[in-house]
Simulated scan of single mutants.
Amino acid sequence: MNAQGHSLPDALTLVFDGAGRATTVNDDSFPVWSPPDTGVGFAWQHLRLEAPATQSLLRASGLDEFVIDALMADETRPRCTVHGDGVILNLRGVNLLPDQLPEDMISVRMWLTEAKVIGVWRRPLDAVFDFLASIERGQGPRTPGDFVARMALRLADRAEPAITDLNERVDDLEEILLEPDADISRTELSAIRRSSIVLRGYLVPQRDALTTLEIEDLPWLQALDRSRLREASERIYRIGEDLAAVRERVQIIHDQLMDQRAERMNSRMLVLSVVSAVFLPLSLVAGVLGINVGGVPGASNPSAFWEVCVLLVVLGGVLLAVARWLGMFR
């Protein structure tokens, strides 16, 4: 599933039974929902940020203003903040919407407690649709910690094709660079470098947020939850390393491109230097013989002009030979 051609309701409320299965319930029942006596299971409510009823639903769930402001902020960065008995967790996913840049990442805002997860979304995200598809197959999360780990892994799954695309673009540029007189657009290099820097700028804090959640002393985080959170953070770490490698490869291509351009410029300057070295003495001789004063040699000799031309040719040949002997043509 993906965000293209699919839509989410303004409010989606699911109750998980602790065994991977979920049922949809009425949105108004979420504030009063509580886990059964066995303590197994939790509820998830996913709200659209701009929906008129979102703020009232958040207040009905008993959230204080600090949490509501964090969930409804205009701009967010990946972070994990423990607040009371719950956690504010912000993650980011690559933007795979049509005509959008992957680095224009989409936020995933969550409030986590032992029995409830509240999420707020502004734009549809493919990872959420993947998550819902797995729930429909009966492979949903069993605990809130498992919920976060699975969501983070879905975000990583959707990020990897974007990283692969960047690597392929760099591969193409490296092949072009092997060709003589390679012409690589610096605009393309800058675009790839910018994408890698922006993506890594969000994914590295995302790994830190997951690591922070893993080590927090929260009684409702089980050992298996912490293990899966560690796996998700390591997955994001590897993606961050791939992005760092892309940035370094782009820098190497840029350096090699500048070296090739410098070599071509040096070759042209060498030609100009040889030409100048050859013609400077010739110009001096011609200038001296061309002055309009008495005593110029050959002024009364009708064949002096041709003799001077032969002398200049011989002198030019000697200068070219000296330049070759000095290695100026290498």
Rank of each mutant, 00 (worst) to 15 (best):
N2R: 12
Q4H: 09
Q4A: 13
H6S: 13
S7G: 13
L8Y: 02
P9W: 07
D10F: 08
A11R: 05
A11S: 13
F16E: 08
F16L: 14
D17S: 15
A19E: 07
R21C: 12
N26K: 15
D27H: 03
S34N: 06
G41A: 07
G41D: 12
F42L: 02
L49N: 04
P52L: 13
S56I: 15
A60L: 10
L63G: 03
L63W: 10
F66Q: 14
V67Q: 04
D69G: 11
E75F: 15
P78F: 00
T81Q: 14
L89F: 02
L89P: 01
N90K: 13
G93W: 00
P98D: 00
P98C: 04
L101M: 12
D104P: 08
W111E: 05
E114P: 13
G119C: 11
P124I: 12
S134I: 09
S134R: 10
S134H: 12
G138S: 03
G140K: 12
P141C: 07
G145M: 00
F147G: 01
F147N: 01
A149K: 05
R150H: 09
A152L: 05
L153V: 06
L155T: 01
L155Q: 02
D157Q: 10
L166K: 08
R169W: 12
L173S: 05
L173T: 06
E179S: 12
S185W: 00
T187L: 15
R193G: 10
I197F: 11
L199A: 02
Y202R: 15
Y202M: 14
Q206E: 07
A209Y: 01
P219Q: 01
Q222S: 08
A223L: 08
R226F: 01
R226T: 06
E231F: 07
I236K: 14
Y237L: 15
G240A: 13
E241N: 07
D242M: 11
D242W: 06
V246S: 06
R249P: 10
Q251V: 07
Q256K: 05
Q256V: 03
R261M: 14
A262F: 05
E263C: 13
S267T: 14
M269T: 07
V271P: 06
V274Q: 07
V278G: 01
P281D: 04
S283H: 08
V285D: 12
A286L: 08
V288D: 08
G295R: 00
G298Q: 02
G298P: 01
G298D: 06
A299K: 01
S300L: 13
N301D: 15
A304V: 05
E307K: 01
V313D: 10
L315D: 02
G316L: 10
A321W: 07
V322D: 08
V322M: 13
G327C: 07
R330P: 04
